[in-house]
Amino acid sequence: MSEHTSATTATGINMYDVRPTTEVPAESPLAWSYHHTGHPGVSQRSRVVIRERAMLGHVVLRGGAIVLDEAVRQVLGFGLPARPNTLNQDPSGERSAQWLSPDEWLVIVPGGEEFSLEAKLREALGDAHYAIVNVSGGQTLLELEGEAATELLMKSTPYDVHPAGFPVGKGVTTVFAKSNLILRRPAEDRWELVLRRSFADYLYRWLLDAGQEYAIGVDD
């Protein structure tokens, strides 16, 4: 059978690469939604476009900011955001780190990098007190673009998405419809929504419903 990677660190932590090493069919949390609800196409009239960035590596870091920041700098080449509710990215925008709480950050990397990221961080962190948790199967990322994106967000979240309240580089965990998600703004004209797997279908249906009047399209 196929190989898999597992290790117990010197600090007594089980590290486990949960990605198959062989070609195995994988389904994003929105697979059922595309099948069941469908995905309206993008047209000239679409004032909002959503696009799933499926199968990325999502890793939660817990620990002291100073300790983690140094390790992240070593491994990713950029540091943790220092201010609450902010987001740092590498120049390609492919890797990001977001403040979630005073001792918690969400790191998103290209799919497949999550295990080596964990391994390298653990190596850099030694026996400091921290936690690293792979949550890649538990969430997915949606991009939201278009001139009506802000208004669509206003229908959905009580958080202030006006540029005055939500400049580029900000990211928050907040209420969205009757659920919640992570909302971030990596670029002037692009929002990102990090959805929990089990709520993804509800949130997807919400977005399509609220976006109907903007002829919302799903880019796939």
Partner: peptide
């Protein structure tokens, strides 16, 4: 540290 992995694992 506690982290929810309810959605990560099936």
């Amino acid at each position: 540290y506690f982290n929810s992995v309810t959605d990560h694992w099936a």
